[in-house]
């Protein structure tokens, strides 16, 4: 297997959270969250539903502000870093009838704050087509987004997130509408992207964590961060249920007794 050239010259903490608290309607959702994410990492955020995973993601994206504590993404507070962030939201089928082509969906990634006229430039179109090509979705530019399968849609959403060459890619439950084989292919794709982009994936399904994952953050109001992709008693207790693992290739995971 060919050696991949290291893209990152020095490892630095690209995301920093310190003592972050967040409540919703007076109910605490996240407490005392402190951890750092290194550049080049492939982080999985896991945890039970309602535990605060999506909230944590939204805090890192800058869509919501913490009640207490500090968050720094690439050195600034999240809303300011958003031009350099790629975001792939969960594929909810609400707008599947929407009259929009896949090219226009990807072009949405080129929008930015303070653009005078909201017309896309020729460069915008070129970059969008390039991103679509990178995702192997070349023939689909004019198709309506609703005509695509779940897996194809996800590729388009990734293209939309990549069109501005982000430093970090955030994905929210990206495999919820993809079948098992598709999921394996999907994580291979993410591993390929991880060579030059830091990746943060939110997933509530421990069963489908790929071995490509480098680190794990378990969220259930509090966050336990694990540098190695190893399941510990702590994590198992948090889920309050037995967990199974599927490993690709050489398993480097250990399932603790429970």
């Amino acid at each position: 297997m060919p050696d991949t050239k290291p893209v990152f010259q020095k490892l630095k903490n690209i995301i920093k959270l310190k003592n972050v608290w967040f409540s919703y309607n007076g109910q605490p959702v996240l407490k005392e969250v402190s951890f750092d994410v290194r550049q080049g990492e492939f982080l999985a955020i896991i945890g039970p539903n309602g535990g605060g995973k999506t909230t944590l993601l939204k805090l890192m994206l800058g869509l919501i502000k913490p009640d207490q504590g500090a968050i720094r993404v690439m050195g600034c507070t999240p809303p300011l870093s958003s031009p350099n962030i790629g975001y792939v939201p969960q594929d909810v089928h609400i707008n599947s009838r929407f009259p929009i082509s896949t090219l226009d969906v990807v072009l949405m990634g080129r929008l930015r704050h303070g653009r005078k006229l909201s017309r896309h430039s020729a460069k915008d179109r070129r970059d969008a087509l390039q991103a679509i090509d990178k995702m192997g979705m070349n023939g689909f530019c004019d198709h309506r987004i609703g005509e695509l399968s779940g897996g194809q849609r996800q590729r388009i959403f990734i293209a939309r997130a990549l069109v501005t060459n982000p430093e970090i890619l955030f994905l929210d439950e990206p495999t919820s509408s993809i079948d098992t084989q598709g999921q394996a292919d999907f994580f291979d794709l993410l591993k390929h992207l991880n060579r030059s982009i830091t990746i943060v994936v939110v997933s509530h399904d421990l069963m489908m964590l790929s071995s490509h994952i480098k680190s794990i953050a378990c969220v259930n109001q509090k966050v336990h961060y694990h540098d190695e992709a190893e399941i510990t008693d702590e994590m198992v207790d948090m889920y309050h249920c037995p967990v199974e693992l599927i490993a690709h290739g050489f398993p480097h995971r250990v399932l603790k007794k429970h």
Binding site: G62, L63, P83, Y87, P89, G109, L111, H113, L117, S118
Partner: peptide, 23 residues
């Protein structure tokens, strides 16, 4: 016409539009 792409983004995916800095 002036706000077409912003309106399109807001109508299709408001959260993403907000993230991209669309008002």
């Amino acid at each position: 016409a002036f706000y077409y792409n912003d309106l399109l983004a807001m109508s299709y995916d408001e959260e993403f539009a907000r993230l991209r800095g669309v008002p």
